[in-house]
Computed example of a mutant assay.
Amino acid sequence: MSNPKLTVAIIGGGIGGLSFAVALLKARNDVVIDIYEAGETFSELGAGLNLWPRVLEVLHSFGLEDELYKYAGPPGLYKKMKFMKADQPEGIYWGEAPANMHGIHRADFLKVFVNHTTTGCTSHFSKKLLSYEDAAGRPVTLKFADGTTATCDLLVGADGVKSAVRSNMYSQIADEMEKAGRPSDVVQSMKNCMKPIWAGSIIYRQLIPREVLEKAFPDHVALDNPTFFQGKSKFLITYPISKGRWVNCAAIVARHDQYGSTYEGSWAVRVTNDVLAEEYANWDPAATTLIHLMDSPIRWVMNTVEYLPTYASGRVAILGDAAHAMTTYQAAGAMQAVEVTVTRTFRSRKSLTEGARTASFSRLC
């Protein structure tokens, strides 16, 4: 009689969660995967993503490159990123990236993974996780906001920077330390990992239609080249996406002294251009043109978490923004989720056996 398949629950249907699901499907044929998404469907907020060679290698190894190029355009369409010191009336180009980068819309990138989870995974929507129980000798039990429950052998939290999985994990770690008589400051440091903190930075994002930029600045570098405009505690990163139909713009303003505080107000809201234009006054015309064309950007508050001593506890692990091992200053957060998730999945595949039902997740990852 064959052993029953290992059941894996993934909380969160964003890029991190779905890339992990695809990687696991590629690595194993003896798992059952359930994806629990808080929203009514798979959707990805935001605008553009830049894909560097390592991530393209990962997608190629999965056989996903044709779908990628369908949305983003062929490899020859994209070029190396240029770097400019731009916080002065006449900027200075000082270098370029060593490799070409590929621009794609976040929603299109997510579709590539969604297409490969329709078979092999069961997706559940409007499932917001509240808590879980990881008791010895029993399956991990999941409790959702709608009053339902589910069970699994392994739980993976890919539920964003506000992660309920991380919050529950570190609450339990803190309780265990407190019962063991560990010092109060050590216990508190575990509790500090539960909630996100403000990284002290705000990102303003908007897509500019190619024809709009061409009309305002016909030979603008960003029409064909990814460009990184840099200044003190500020930068503007831009690159074409969707086969060049749009120019993705992300302007970041850092307040380093605010790191670790709590941002009061909405984390994502559409704003007028006034504040943004003032922040980038007297920059190079190539940069200020883009700033003024960002007439109604979305203001994203960049949040992170305290240093995490572990990403796994018992039969539970976290990844992507739930773990948030880096802030996204180089617009590489989603790609880090893909690369790290895939690499560790394949490194661990020989360990993912029947014993995982009772083993520590840290031994598997």
Results as ranks from 00 to 15, higher is better:
201 S>I: 04
239 Y>A: 05
62 F>I: 13
164 A>R: 07
93 Y>T: 10
53 P>R: 10
50 N>P: 01
295 D>H: 04
88 Q>D: 03
212 V>C: 01
79 K>N: 14
44 E>I: 04
2 S>I: 10
282 N>G: 05
276 L>F: 04
42 F>D: 13
339 E>K: 10
162 K>E: 07
323 A>Q: 05
245 R>N: 15
305 V>G: 01
252 I>P: 00
326 M>H: 12
43 S>F: 09
119 T>S: 14
8 V>N: 00
286 A>M: 09
247 V>Y: 00
113 F>T: 03
220 H>Y: 01
24 L>T: 03
300 W>S: 14
280 Y>G: 02
140 V>G: 05
311 Y>H: 13
137 G>R: 09
34 D>Y: 09
103 G>F: 06
14 G>Q: 08
271 V>R: 08
90 E>G: 02
168 N>L: 03
25 L>K: 13
267 W>T: 14
305 V>A: 00
284 D>R: 05
286 A>E: 10
167 S>G: 05
210 R>Y: 11
29 N>P: 00
75 P>Y: 07
224 D>Q: 13
141 T>K: 14
28 R>S: 13
261 S>H: 07
70 K>D: 15
325 A>L: 12
133 E>F: 02
326 M>T: 14
304 T>Q: 06
223 L>T: 07
3 N>Y: 09
8 V>T: 08
164 A>W: 02
131 S>M: 03
112 V>A: 07
294 M>W: 05
149 T>H: 09
312 A>R: 06
186 V>I: 12
225 N>S: 11
209 P>Q: 06
88 Q>E: 08
245 R>H: 14
314 G>H: 01
310 T>A: 11
